[in-house]
């Protein structure tokens, strides 16, 4: 990566304008991932002065500033209880503490990384993103949106819900990217199942969700069938980490385990 200029902005407006002034201007959040790319950045926009690193608990949500580090989010007491702490757990599987002290939640979302262990658990929660200009958009819509216009992510809003959740990252060693990751949540009788790093971007297993959500009772047979449906409907791919077939097999195994856990 090459950076030609650097600007610490005083307001979101300034950030937004600067961002759109030149195609090659970009926000640098943690800057950890950007370093690995070969991008040329004309002006790097630093949001440090805007207090976007706060995590605020309101009556019905957690509002996480886009510049909060993954470690801050992981260690936030309130979030440790939400969806039985699935987000903390997922974040703790990302590299080591020193990277999580730098990488931000905002950068992790905007990047739409296909290997992401941040997006998969967030997707099965009720999450809204707040942009400076575009306003609020659900995480689900953001992930499928083709809108490429540049905007500043301000907050990530996680609604408080009475729900249980499960996350698993299959990785070969402690510093590995996910070979596959699976998140499942259960709110009342509604299940959400998301599978990431297939190796492409995280997706809901919609047919499997429909099947399990229709079932009167989630028996062991239903669980097995749900996993099978998910395995069939989702596309998996082969790369140097694993084959398509292996990814499918472990995704199904962890969907089964996840379902068993959230119905406990």
């Amino acid at each position: 990566m090459k950076i030609n200029g650097y600007q610490t902005v005083k307001s979101l407006e300034e950030a937004y304008n600067l961002l759109n002034e030149n195609k090659q201007n970009a926000i640098v959040a943690g800057g950890a991932w950007m370093r690995l790319s070969s991008k040329v950045i004309e002006t790097a926009i630093d949001l440090s002065g805007l207090e976007l690193d706060q995590i605020v608990e309101t009556k019905d949500a957690f509002e996480i500033g886009a510049m909060a580090t993954l470690r801050q989010v992981e260690k936030q007491e309130g979030l440790k209880n939400l969806y039985n702490g699935v987000l903390s757990k997922a974040l703790s599987k990302i590299m080591g503490v020193p990277i999580r002290n730098v990488a931000t939640i905002g950068g992790s979302i905007i990047g739409k990384y296909s290997f992401s262990d941040v997006l998969t658990p967030l997707l099965v929660m009720n999450v809204e993103l707040e942009f400076y200009k575009k306003g609020k958009i659900s995480l689900e819509d953001f992930l499928v949106s083709k809108d490429r216009s540049k905007d500043v992510l301000v907050k990530v809003i996680i609604k408080k819900e009475e729900a249980k959740a499960y996350f698993h990252k299959m990785q070969k060693t402690g510093l590995d990217f996910a070979v596959v990751n699976v998140a499942i949540s259960k709110k009342a009788d509604t299940f959400k199942i998301a599978v990431g790093a297939r190796p492409s971007l995280v997706k809901f297993a919609l047919e499997a969700m429909a099947f399990v959500n229709d079932a009167k009772e989630v028996t062991e047979e239903v669980i097995l069938e749900t996993a099978l449906i998910a395995g069939k409907e989702l596309k998996f791919g082969t790369n140097s980490k694993a084959s398509e077939e292996y990814r499918r097999n472990i995704a199904m195994a962890y969907i089964k385990r996840g379902l068993r856990e959230v119905i406990k």
Partner: peptide
């Protein structure tokens, strides 16, 4: 940013100095 031998403390917290501008 994957080996950790460059670790320093940034406001008291460990970071990989090769990952921070």
């Amino acid at each position: 940013s994957s080996c950790g031998v460059c670790t320093v403390l940034f406001d008291g917290k460990p970071i990989k100095s090769c990952s921070l501008l």
